[in-house]
Nucleic acid binder design. Sequence first.
DNA 1: ATGTCC
Length: 405
Amino acid sequence: MGTFFGDTSVSTQPACTPATIHHYFSAESWIEGAALDQLDRMARLPGVRSIAAFPDLHPGKYGATGVALLSDRLHPLLVGNDIGCGMSLFELDLPLRKLKLDRAASRLRRFDALAVDDAAGRLDGVGLPGDLFADALGTIGGGNHFCELQAVESLSSPVSGIGRQGLYLLVHSGSRGFGAAVLSDSLSAEPDLMSGLDASSPAGLHWLGRHDQCVAWASLNRILIAEKAASALGADCRLVTDVPHNLVRRSEKGYVHHKGAAAVDPGTIAPLAGSRATLSYIVRATEKVAGSLGGISHGAGRKYDRATMHGRVGRTRSERDDLLRNAWGGIAICDDRALVIEEAPSAYKDAGRVVADLVAAGLVESLAAMRPLVTYKKAVDEEGRARRPDKPDHRQTGRRKHDRY
DNA sequence: ATGTCC
């Protein structure tokens, strides 16, 4: 399966008028040329009417990430494999003054491996089959996914559910193997998926139905991750806001595809993630998001791709250790050496710059800045295996998949 | 992104 943008067959199709591309970023936000090229290609895909591009725009596998795209055909490739991926913010019933950072970090070190209590019942509770990828439910996954303990660094305006003395969990995760299976099934059934699907065709209806399940699954997944993390800390958590950024929303105008663009409505409170060593933000969408197809940025956006990061940072053990601490005394938990490098804070743009562009465009008001205290990425056990609950290990032979610390 | 290609 090649990536679509290497295929010239579509760009030479009889030209319909390319969709309008709206840029919601300023000259101060550096945008990679490859991402702008991808936007031009996306604007020529069948059925695409208009595109909103946000300041965290960066190149992706099948198209640029950081966009909302209105189309009258469905484009599963533009949503990608992690259907339903999003950011959820939770408030802990544990005050900041009671936090012992080192103890919290050691408790969180084990939390991802905790089993979910009554996964089948929880799936059933949101209208999903009780056996739907139940083993993966409540797990964070890899790549840029995380669960982060945060405190308020500054509060620009009062927000219900957010206070200076509180502690918060920001969870970034998606639909794990489920979304990946949905995309791969669609690719097998329709090799020319780059042309999109008629939404009323059997394949289109099938993808939409599975998509809706992924969105519900991913949302539940973030809740269960937070519940497990809260429980590891001896606390309860309350959902403040849940905002997906990989999905399709139906509108009267067509299908709005979100790829790494938070799906909001006027008034939605949305997290905008920085990195494990920089501030994240809480913003509120304004009325003007109707003009940006209901999209805003969900994070800082990548500045360097994963491959480029190798060699740039983390050459020595001590450099890698430094990558796991931040200026506020915060700690990142990541036993996977490659992930430490690929997700280094310097791989990301400045989330503050992203917020400033969105504010300047009138799309959001900034409510709060949040500092990272403990960022959970991945832990491995003594044998170098990822911590997974109730999973027999089939990888005992050969060398370890991940280097340990 | 992915119980990720063996």
